[in-house]
Structures are given as structure tokens and as C-alpha cells.
């Protein structure tokens, strides 16, 4: 992927993510449920590994870290991505650097290692089991 494509996509996703979080923050503040966008959840009725991420991010914004961890541990990673990446890219564009592109390339290389990727998949699987367990009131 070229630098230009990556920056455009990541900036778009980051800003869209921020808008979605603000919308969910307001909705959840009024004790209303945000619109369910998860296709997997709508089709199967079961949560996907990243279901509950927005709830988790809203809890982080309220400073309730334990609650956030319980809702979905991936919320911390998503929060970092949404909070950091758009501004990192903007800084790169302003100062005409490519530090984010280099970081992304090395991250991809790191994740292509089969052991690293296996560990990553295992972690996602554990989070998914945790989500399903919560949904079925096992936890």
C-alpha cells in the first residue's frame, strides 16, 4: 500500500471513529443504546470479538478502567488507535515526514511472523470467548 493511500484511509477511519465515539458517548449518556452496526451480531445473535469496544471506550473516557476492561479489553487498543493515529498522520502531513508509514510497515512485518500472528489470534479468541461468556451470562 502506498503512503498516500494509507494516510487517506487511516485518516478517514480515525476521524470516522472519533465521530462515532462522540455519537455513542452522547447516546449512552442519555441511557440510550447506540445503533448496532455489527453484521455478525445481527446475523448470528452472538457477539463478535470487537463487540462492546465502543462501550469500553466510553468507560475509558469516564475513567472507569476496570469496567472498560470487563466490557472489552480491545477497547484500550481501539482507543489508542482512534486517539493517536489521526493526529500522528496530520503531524506527518504538516512536517512532511513519513514516520507513521514507516511504523505501519514495520508493524506489518512484525505481525507477518507466524508466532506473533498465532499469539495475536489466540488473544483475539480469548477476548471473543470472554464476550460470548458475558453475553450468555457465564461471566
Amino acid at each position: 500500500m502506498t503512503r498516500k493511500n494509507l494516510y487517506f484511509l487511516a485518516l478517514f477511519l480515525g476521524l470516522a471513529g472519533q465521530i462515532w465515539i462522540v455519537y455513542s458517548y452522547i447516546k449512552l449518556g442519555k441511557q440510550e443504546e447506540a445503533f448496532n452496526t455489527c453484521i455478525f451480531n445481527r446475523v448470528t445473535g452472538l457477539p463478535c470479538p470487537s463487540c462492546g469496544t465502543v462501550h469500553s471506550i466510553v468507560s475509558i473516557l469516564h475513567g472507569e478502567f476496570r469496567k472498560a476492561l470487563n466490557e472489552n479489553p480491545l477497547g484500550f487498543a481501539s482507543f489508542l488507535m482512534v486517539a493517536v493515529i489521526p493526529y500522528w498522520i496530520l503531524a506527518d502531513l504538516v512536517f512532511r515526514k513519513d514516520s507513521f508509514y514507516r511504523f505501519y510497515s514495520s508493524f506489518e512485518k512484525f505481525l507477518k511472523n507466524k508466532w506473533v500472528f498465532s499469539c495475536f489470534l489466540f488473544l483475539i479468541f480469548v477476548v471473543w470467548l470472554h464476550n460470548i461468556g458475558q453475553f450468555l451470562h457465564w461471566i
Binding site: M1, L9, A10, L13, G17, T37, C38, I39, F40, C48, P49, S50, C51, T53, L74, A77, S78, M81, Y104, F107, E108, L111, K112, F117, F120, I124
Partner: peptide, 13 residues
Amino acid sequence: DMGLGVAKLLTCG
């Protein structure tokens, strides 16, 4: 596209 895969996974597609 591992990075995009992770982003897609973490954001419910």
C-alpha cells in the same frame, strides 16, 4: 494487509 486486517477486526468490520 495485516495492519488493515487488525483495524477491520477491531472496528467490527
